Computed example of a mutant assay.
Amino acid sequence: MSLPSTHQTAIIGAGVMGETLLSGLVRAGRRVDTLLVGEKRAERAAELEERYGVTVLGNVAAAKAADTVALVVKPQDMGELLAEIAPVLRPGQLLVSLAAGITTAYIEARVPADVAVVRVMPNTPALVDEGMAAISPGSHCGDADLAEAEALMGSCGKVLRVPEKQMDAVTAISGSGPAYVFYVVESMIEAGVHLGLPRATASELVVQTVLGSAVMLRETGTHPAVLREQVTSPAGTTAAALRELEIHKVRAAFLAAMEAARDRSRELAAQD
């Protein structure tokens, strides 16, 4: 998406995800003189200015100067932040919220009318430019606003537009999803050690296997069940292993886990 050379983007919240977004935008070619960061801690501000060459301001000053404002704060801090910056927001600005469980309606009720809001559910692989972000428009959001949100999040991964009613499910799948993968990887490594492998060997075997499997899924477009069957010889080692997973109801456990994550996301939204 081509933006005017004067278009200013502010990132409020300079934690891990905020810096991930900032570094992704810089790597994607955004001019640093069009990027602002809202950060109150002087030491952190100096660190970001030195590392990226961006201007770091207070939250209010950054929100006032920007055309697009990315809100990268914890859900429990969103109400306080909106109360702080709302007086300087203006119609035509775009707010992009990365806070889990915070609805566009919650934000729209606390900012001036005709401020566009886009809700985003990112995930941590954005740290290595392999993120999966889902975005949903608010009631005052146009195509240009969605395109700008896509460009923001596309700097560090893939972006998918979804209806906001699906965001709780998205949170359960891709938002929390990396933790499930890390849990499986951790379990496989521990199993390898139990079976007699050195931990470093087990780690390398598991990580590359997971990476290679993910690339196969993406590159071939083949259904995972088909790929699984290609590995599974009748009465072979893989079949024996999969039988144990079925006996222990691992598939059902994943469903229950993701339902729990979805329900918790709904609870967070209900606290608005």
Rank of each mutant, 00 (worst) to 15 (best):
M1T: 15
Q8K: 15
A10L: 10
I11W: 01
I12N: 10
G13W: 02
G13P: 07
G15L: 13
T20L: 02
L21G: 05
R27E: 09
R30F: 02
V32F: 08
T34Y: 01
G38K: 04
G38H: 05
G38Y: 06
R41F: 12
R44V: 08
R44T: 10
A45H: 00
A46K: 12
E47V: 08
E50D: 14
E50I: 00
R51P: 04
Y52N: 00
G53T: 07
V54F: 01
L57S: 05
V60W: 03
V60S: 01
A61R: 09
A63Q: 09
A63C: 07
A65E: 11
A65Y: 10
A66D: 05
A66H: 00
D67F: 05
D67K: 02
A70Y: 11
A70D: 08
L71R: 06
L71N: 13
V73Q: 06
P75A: 13
E80Q: 15
L89Q: 02
Q93P: 09
V96T: 06
L98C: 13
A100G: 02
I102H: 00
I107C: 06
E108N: 01
A109R: 11
A109E: 14
A113I: 07
D114G: 04
V115D: 11
V117I: 12
V117L: 12
R119M: 03
M121Q: 05
P122T: 06
N123L: 12
N123G: 14
T124P: 09
T124K: 09
A126N: 08
G131A: 13
S136K: 10
S136R: 03
G138V: 06
C141M: 03
D145Q: 14
A151T: 14
L152R: 13
M153C: 13
S155I: 07
V159D: 02
V162L: 15
V162H: 01
K165M: 10
M167E: 00
D168T: 01
A169M: 08
A172I: 09
I173G: 05
E186N: 14
M188D: 01
E190V: 02
V193I: 08
H194Q: 14
H194P: 08
G196I: 06
G196N: 12
G196Q: 10
L197N: 03
A200F: 04
A202H: 04
A202M: 00
S203W: 05
V206I: 05
V207K: 15
T209M: 13
T209Y: 07
A214M: 06
V215M: 10
V215Q: 15
E219K: 03
T220I: 05
A225K: 13
V226E: 12
V226W: 06
R228Q: 14
T232I: 11
S233T: 15
P234D: 00
G236C: 03
G236L: 01
T237W: 01
A239F: 03
A240H: 12
A241N: 14
R243A: 15
L245F: 13
E246W: 03
E246K: 12
I247Q: 10
H248G: 05
H248A: 10
L255P: 12
M258V: 08
A260L: 06
A261P: 04
S265H: 02
E267T: 11
L268K: 03
A269F: 07
Q271R: 15
D272V: 11
